[in-house]
């Protein structure tokens, strides 16, 4: 290996990408060549500078936004002609048990039109929906998500086609949060709906009624168990504004000690310390803070815990 080769391979050396024999040759040359040692030192300094540079990390909020936007894009995708085409191609596959499924029979006139089926397609009419008395207009298709097509039967006589499919119909509920049924839907959403963006919006909607017992329980549940850190953080903010009680205290302590996300842990520190300082009670909080100040894996959390300890000590004196 000569000086030129060394120059070319110094990055590979620093990234540990050289094969063992090349590495050995590299080091042999290095041992006998001061010029190359200097150049490698420079390369190493660049390597170090680049490593000082913080790497972008997606925030929980960004993740939530991405998931929400994707969810909407997939909805549009499923409702569009692509989705319908796919539905046809997969009609032999087993469909999942739809939660809000209704069996719709659509009568389309002109087989070719089926392929241009889009939400709000103007040329698509008339349609009838069997099993209901109300006429089923073309614009209603915008509210329907097709899950499974079980039959496509062209009628040579009329030139029409009958499609039997399982679909979900979008319904809009409007009402006051004082209505227990509305609250129940929201509480169920917080506890079990799989789109985190929607769960977060639901927390927001429930904020004004956070001291209602079932809402309160759902919010604490979200703080403890939601899979998404952004949602847990949102739940924590709402919980902070609740009437304080042992349940709130326990949930916050749990978040501080066990939440996997450092942002949530830090928010829990803030909430607990704020309350402890106001009420002058810190015998349960202090030991946890001391423990985490020494042992939390995240340096920022350790720092915040330490600052909190100082604040509480200062307050005692």
């Amino acid at each position: 290996m000569n000086c030129d080769d060394l120059e070319k391979t110094s990055s590979l050396y620093l990234y540990d990408e050289l094969r063992a024999e090349d590495r050995a040759a590299f080091e042999t040359h290095l041992a006998s060549c001061a010029g190359c040692r200097t150049r490698l030192e420079e390369a190493r300094r660049l390597h170090r500078v680049l490593s000082e540079c913080p790497q972008p990390e997606p925030t929980p909020e960004l993740l939530v936004r991405c998931r929400q936007a994707l969810d909407e894009a997939l909805d549009r995708e499923q409702l569009g002609w692509r989705g319908l085409l796919r539905g046809w191609m997969w009609q032999f596959g087993a469909a999942p048990a739809p939660r809000l499924a209704a069996v719709l029979t659509l009568l389309l006139f002109g087989f070719g039109l089926g392929w241009t089926l889009r939400p709000r397609a103007r040329s698509l009419a008339p349609l009838t929906l069997s099993g209901t008395t109300s006429p089923f207009g073309a614009s209603d298709l915008g509210d329907v998500r097709i899950r499974h097509i079980s039959e496509v039967a062209p009628d040579p006589q009329s030139g029409g086609v009958r499609i039997t499919l399982d679909a979900e119909r979008r319904v809009t509920l409007e009402g006051s949060l004082d209505d227990p049924r509305i609250r129940q839907v929201l509480v169920d959403t917080v506890r079990g709906y799989d789109n985190p963006g929607i769960r977060r919006d639901t927390l927001d909607a429930l904020r004004t009624h956070r001291d209602n017992p079932s809402v309160r329980a759902a919010l604490l549940y979200a703080l403890r168990h939601d899979a998404n850190a952004g949602v847990r953080l949102e739940a924590l903010k709402t919980v902070r504004g609740m009437q304080w009680g042992p349940d709130v205290h326990q949930a916050l302590l749990g978040a501080l000690e066990h939440d996997a996300n450092p942002g949530v842990r830090v928010a829990a520190v803030d909430a607990l310390v704020e309350h402890a300082v106001e009420e002058g009670e810190n015998e349960t909080v202090m030991p946890v803070l001391l423990k985490l100040a020494a042992s939390d894996q995240n340096p920022y959390v350790r720092l915040q815990c330490l600052a909190a300890v100082r604040k509480m000590e200062g307050n005692e004196q």
Partner: peptide
């Protein structure tokens, strides 16, 4: 998901 199950895809 290949058979069109949206929740599996999610």
């Amino acid at each position: 998901a290949q058979r069109g199950d949206r929740s599996a895809f999610d």
